[in-house]
């Protein structure tokens, strides 16, 4: 940051500790379109054979990658929309509206936000069985959206809290109902937050692994995370080039979205996200 200190020792140490990650990243990409000599790991020949899963007929008992990708997209986007829209209204109520037991609901929000939801998975598994939603995409979507909700409300409330009260007061004075004030005056102010939450929940849904694994293990509702993990578990002799190609295919949207919306997302990743 300034000339009073030398920076090369820091760079050296940082590079050293970053080396394993760097190696993983580089090989993660290189290995998807090269082949090593047998018994070695160094890439030698260019090939696209590792990507054949994209166009070849799936092995029996396996779903087609495109059906799985579609599932993943439906899962991620539906949860994102559900989380965002429910958070939009609930967070506004908690941030700005008068109603009885508001304190109680706010305390509840904090508790829920901190509560480790994954501990409930066994009970949720059984609830879905009772409801007949086990092994369906619908069921996982509901659960994922629900578990993501306290976080969404928390984030949205943070955005609402920054909207000046005077804007709303002025709207009310100008004769608009509270609903109109929210819809026409406040929502436009929290649009950045809305977008960030939407993207964040989409990424979170896209990456989700445990919920689909437990709640929808069947082939019909398979998503890319469970597809990839099943692929890795199944093979007696691991074909890492194939795994990595599927993995890269899986991660590309994440990386692209992250690169495009980096600034917007940084807020959320820093803001009270769970480790």
């Amino acid at each position: 940051m300034n000339a009073n200190f030398k920076s090369w020792p820091v760079i050296a140490i940082l590079s050293l500790v970053s080396l394993p990650l760097l190696i993983m990243f580089v090989f993660q990409i290189v290995d998807t379109f090269t082949n090593p000599y047998p018994g070695s790991i160094w890439p030698q020949m260019f090939t696209i054979e590792h990507w054949r899963f994209l166009w070849e007929e799936p092995a029996t008992g396996r779903s087609s990658i495109w059906a799985v990708t579609w599932n993943t997209f439906v899962f991620a986007s539906t949860t994102a929309v559900a989380v965002t829209s429910i958070s939009l209204t609930a967070a506004y109520a908690l941030s700005r509206l008068n109603f009885p037991a508001r304190r109680f609901f706010l305390a509840g929000l904090i508790v829920l936000h901190a509560f480790p939801t994954i501990t409930l998975i066994i009970a949720i598994f059984l609830i879905l069985q009772f409801l007949g939603l086990y092994n369906s995409l619908m069921g996982v979507i509901l659960v994922k959206a629900a578990l993501e909700l306290p976080f969404g409300i928390w984030i949205m409330k943070g955005f609402y809290d920054t909207v000046p009260w005077e804007i709303e007061m002025a709207g009310v004075q100008d004769g608009a109902s509270r609903f109109t004030v929210w819809w026409k005056l406040v929502l436009p102010q929290v649009q950045p937050g809305l977008a960030a939450l939407l993207i964040f929940s989409f990424l979170s849904g896209w990456s989700e692994f445990v919920l689909p694994l437990v709640l929808a293990p069947g082939n019909d509702a398979q998503v890319l995370s469970t597809y990839l993990s099943a692929l890795i578990l199944d093979d007696a002799k691991p074909d890492f080039n194939l795994f990595k190609s599927v993995g890269l295919f899986y991660a590309i949207p994440v990386i692209v979205i992250y690169l495009v919306f980096q600034k917007k997302l940084m807020n959320i990743y820093g803001g009270g996200s769970k480790g």
Partner: peptide
Amino acid sequence: MPRFNALGFGFLAPALIVVALFFLAPVILT
């Protein structure tokens, strides 16, 4: 005095239902 009860609860209702179904119920059921 609180005139916006209806709106507040209406806005909160979807979240409450979801929370009841997937937080409250699982905790009790666990």
